[in-house]
Amino acid sequence: MNAIIEMKNLNKFYGSHHVLKDIDLSVSRGEVVVVVGASGSGKSTLIRCVNGLEMYQNGSLLVDGYPMPVEEDRRLGGERELAAIRKGVGMVFQQFNLFPHKTVVENITIAPMRVHRKTRREAEATALKLLERVGLEAHAHKYPGQLSGGQQQRVAIARSLAMEPHLMLFDEPTSALDPEMIGEVLDVMRELAADGMTMMIVTHEMGFAREVADRIVYIDQGSILEIGKPDAFFDNPENDRARSFLARVLKH
């Protein structure tokens, strides 16, 4: 069992709007998969399905060996099973979503203390180590509002890592950042990839995608149109729509 994510015939609707169409995708342990596509193509929805922030209507989704229940079953409960899956899956959001009423250290320690029942001392030791890793140990006792966007996003990454996830999801982690801050966040992600973390990333940073990805997934109007090695995808895309998409984004 080498796949950490396994989607088979996954379908999602918002009312009558068909958002994800027959998605088949599997991600192996240690792999870095980058999902690209135009806005509104369903790439964020796809990644949010993996930790159950979005519900899907039919098909199957295995995460880390656990089956993610479809919407009908989730109506009946299953919050605990969901929490069990989420413990092993970290997520980084476009808008960072740090907890504004807690300091940086508290942001990082709250989940390990509540979910893994770690002591404060243990959790804080881990938090400081992680902050050092993302280069923010000096800001440990500030509030998120006192940090720049890039710093907040690095704290958000550290917060996810504190739960020792097997898989990290990144939902456009640099889209809300000023250009000069994108680099510092991408550097942290590069290091994570080099350490062998399994990552699924939605991004518009094509250069970064090409550099770190093991595979690129191109998605358009809710369907996966192409999956391939980065070099093959960027130099010689097979799909017509992928080609015109690349022509549009690589022009700048």
Partner: peptide, 29 residues
């Protein structure tokens, strides 16, 4: 914001913990 709940959920926190430690303090403010 709903994103606060989502972020806490993505960390595997229980709904009770989310409401008590993340949502309520910000709501009371």
């Amino acid at each position: 914001p709903r994103e606060q709940t989502e972020a806490a959920r993505s960390l595997g926190m229980s709904e009770f913990d989310i409401n008590r430690s993340i949502v309520l303090p910000q709501a009371l403010r």
